[in-house]
């Protein structure tokens, strides 16, 4: 994955994508026990005028480097990478406040545990709830920070539903 991250860092430096952060399952694995996943979700800062954004420049840039699209993703050095623009204010904030980490010798960013849980509650699928519960059980979440994020993004009701379901 280090080579994949180097390519993505290069994309950011070259201005092909804005500031990025790892989200989704791989970001979750940074905090909790590992589980099977196939894609690396890269969320990048983007203005989405009228709700539409073209990924053509990203795909074109990667194709020129020999990385081909595979369905919704692009295979970069053995990892199917899905590029997702920041599609709402919560995801935009998650990218903006992502945590700087190192994977071996390569710098990268992952969304904070609190933002990941907030995104999981917003998405609201059963698997997201189960994963959010795991985050809380592992004690990797700063509950005060999570509460602040949830209230600012209108997710307090979702939190209540989740708490009713999981008894937190």
């Amino acid at each position: 994955m280090e080579k994949t991250l180097r390519v993505i860092n290069r994309m950011e430096t070259d201005g092909v994508i804005g500031r990025y952060a790892i989200g989704g399952a791989v970001a979750a694995i940074f905090y909790i026990e590992p589980f099977t996943t196939y894609d690396l979700d890269i969320f990048f800062a983007a203005d989405i005028p009228g709700g539409l954004i073209t990924l053509t420049p990203i795909y074109g840039y990667l194709a020129r480097k020999g990385y081909e699209a595979e369905g919704e993703a692009v295979n970069i050095e053995g990892w199917p990478v899905q590029f997702l623009p920041t599609y709402n204010p919560l995801v935009a904030e998650a990218v903006e406040q992502a945590v700087e980490i190192k994977f071996k010798r390569t710098r990268t960013r992952v969304m904070s545990a609190e933002h990941l849980v907030a995104v999981m509650l917003q998405t609201g699928r059963p698997k997201d709830h189960a994963r959010a519960a795991e985050f809380l059980e592992e004690g990797v979440v700063d509950v005060a920070r999570l509460t602040d994020i949830l209230s600012r993004h209108g997710l307090t009701d979702k939190w209540q539903e989740f708490a009713d379901e999981f008894g937190s």
Binding site: I29, P34, T37
Partner: peptide, 11 residues
């Protein structure tokens, strides 16, 4: 994280 990703690769 590196060890976890190695486990993911094996999975």
């Amino acid at each position: 994280f590196e060890e976890k990703i190695e486990i993911v690769r094996r999975l």
